[in-house]
Simulated assay, not measured.
Amino acid sequence: MVLEAAMLYVKEGMEEQYEEAFREASKIISSMKGYMSHELQRCMETKGKYLLLVQWETLEDHTIGFRQSNEYQDWKKQLHHFYDPFPTVEHFEMVKFL
């Protein structure tokens, strides 16, 4: 399992519109191969700041399967105009302990 994490900064005054657009866009990501789950967290201290967490089966399910798909183009159209600055996306793997 791979965890995709992105800190998102939504343009001031567009938070409600963004959350509604994200609800709709969620249908896109949740239909993709390798998708496991996702959540969007709203920051309590900073207005317009969100944390997106997406679980994928493999890194390639996100970086190739989703990012290089036609569905990703629809995702971009629905969401990317809300961000300033554009988010950095990072990937994490579980640290296993004995």
Rank of each mutant, 00 (worst) to 15 (best):
T88S: 05
L51H: 07
N70I: 06
E12M: 02
S69Y: 08
S69R: 08
E12Q: 10
L59V: 02
E60V: 08
P87A: 03
E45T: 11
F97A: 02
K27T: 10
V89H: 00
S37L: 02
D84H: 08
P85M: 05
K77P: 01
I64V: 15
M1L: 06
T63R: 13
Y18N: 06
H81A: 02
Y72N: 11
A5W: 04
M14K: 14
Q41Y: 12
L3G: 01
F82W: 05
Q73C: 00
F97G: 02
E12I: 00
E15C: 01
G48D: 03
S31K: 13
Q78W: 01
K77N: 11
Q41G: 02
E39I: 12
S31P: 06
G34E: 10
K77W: 01
T63I: 06
H81M: 03
Q41I: 14
M7F: 04
T46S: 11
E45G: 13
H80T: 07
G13L: 09
G34A: 12
P85A: 05
E71V: 03
P87F: 01
L40T: 04
G48H: 08
Q68A: 09
I64T: 14
R42L: 02
K49D: 00
M36K: 15
R23A: 08
E12H: 07
L79R: 09
E15H: 10
A25G: 13
S31D: 10
W56Y: 09
W75G: 02
S26L: 04
M1E: 06
E19Q: 10
Q68V: 03
F22D: 02
T63M: 13
L79C: 09
V2C: 01
V54G: 04
Y72L: 01
S26Y: 04
W56I: 07
K33D: 15
E15I: 06
Q41D: 02
M14S: 12
Q68N: 15
Q17F: 06
H62Y: 06
T58P: 04
K77F: 00
L3I: 15
H81S: 11
D61W: 02
R23S: 07
L51V: 11
V89Y: 00
A25D: 10
Q68S: 11
G13Q: 08
L3E: 01
M7P: 00
M14L: 15
M14G: 00
E19T: 04
Q68P: 01
S31Q: 11
H38N: 12
S69A: 13
F66A: 02
D74K: 14
T46W: 03
Y18C: 05
F92K: 07
H38G: 05
V10D: 00
Y35I: 08
L40G: 08
F82V: 05
E16V: 10
S37M: 13
H91K: 04
R23C: 07
S30K: 14
M7L: 12
F92H: 15
L8A: 05
M14R: 15
E4H: 04
M36W: 02
K33P: 06
E57S: 13
Y9H: 14
A5E: 05
H38Q: 13
Y9N: 13
S26A: 15
E24Y: 05
E15N: 07
